[in-house]
């Protein structure tokens, strides 16, 4: 009689903070001296004793890379950390983004002929700290010869993070801002349409960020028949399929997700519509 082999670890680890870097007025990036095995899209539960425990996306492993927006009591405490301090966490937890399978010879050839790159190109659409897991994904994609085009969507210029990180990986980057203070003026989905109108083709789209952005992207991808995967965030507490706080329709985001295909997410009546707070009470109109 076997226990579920896929069950996530609950071991708490305490590791050194290797570096702290300020990304913008409210986001800091932390590198943590740890060698966990994780896949892009998975998250860890970061614990600050006597403060709390919160889910954070992985921007990479070995060292672990986290980028955290300072918005409340827990993230305040994290922003106090300096190089040489320690950070505790458990994980990795949850499901991951799946990269497209390398193409068969013929398709590879066709793609080369249509001036698309090598094995194929994927589209990454990130908003806010949503770029963090997408950066991890772009690194993994590059390792197997898949190129990434990235849309970094922000409200205004000073919200943009990770532009240089993606560029250093050789990704093509399109910045979109709601107010036009930098890059393309418009939202992320308008940015996607802009790229498509230039004749760009993508094997698959991946997104993490505000839910409405992912919702409209998933709808657009469905219409255009482009496979897509999104990271659905809900209030998460236990992270291990037990407490039920992060329910979206019948599924639990902490363990059935956070990564779902766009079509699966669209099949949830609550995706793009209903979230819940720490008590389980509905917050509508997201």
């Amino acid at each position: 009689m076997e226990l579920d082999p896929g069950k996530p670890t609950f071991e708490m680890q305490t590791c050194k903070v290797l570096s702290v870097k300020k990304e913008n007025y409210r986001v800091k990036t932390f590198e943590i001296d740890s060698k966990i095995k994780a896949k892009p899209g998975q998250y860890i539960m970061v614990w600050v004793p006597n403060v709390g425990e919160r889910p954070m996306s992985l921007g990479g492993t070995n060292p672990i890379r986290l980028s955290i927006a300072n918005i409340g009591k827990f993230s305040n405490a994290i922003h106090e950390l300096k190089e040489g301090n320690v950070l505790s966490f458990r994980g990795p937890l949850g499901t991951s983004f799946k990269l497209p399978k390398p193409k068969a010879e013929t398709t590879k050839h066709e793609i080369n002929e249509t001036q698309n790159s090598g094995l194929g190109t994927i589209l990454l659409v990130g908003g806010g700290y949503g770029v963090v897991p997408l950066y991890f994904l772009a690194k993994e994609a590059k390792k197997i010869g898949i190129k990434s085009t990235v849309i970094i969507a922000a409200r205004k210029a000073d919200d943009i993070i990770y532009e240089n990180n993606f560029k250093e990986l050789g990704c093509e980057v399109l910045i979109t801002t709601d107010d036009g203070s930098e890059g393309f003026k418009g939202n992320a989905v308008e940015g996607v349409k802009h790229l498509i109108s230039q004749g760009k083709k993508f094997d698959e789209a991946y997104s993490c960020g505000p839910e409405m952005m992912m919702y409209y992207l998933a709808l657009y991808c469905k219409e255009k028949n482009v496979p897509c995967q999104v990271s659905v965030e809900r209030y998460m507490k236990c992270g291990i399929n037990i407490c039920g706080a992060c329910a979206v329709d019948g599924k639990l985001c902490c363990s059935d997700g956070p990564i779902f295909t766009g079509n699966k997410a669209l099949s949830f009546a609550e995706f793009g519509k209903v979230q819940r707070d720490a008590s389980g009470k509905k917050i509508e109109g997201h």
């Binding site: 609950f10 071991e11 708490m12 539960m45 614990w47 403060v51 709390g52 425990e53 919160r54 507490k237 236990c238 291990i240 037990i242 407490c243 706080a245 819940r276 720490a278 008590s279 389980g280 009470k281 509905k282």
Partner: peptide
Amino acid sequence: GHETPIMVQTDSGFLNAVGYANP
């Protein structure tokens, strides 16, 4: 409900302190 962590693993089980979080 109570502040997180609300669950922690122990030998052959878990401790939980959800604190009756409910709407």
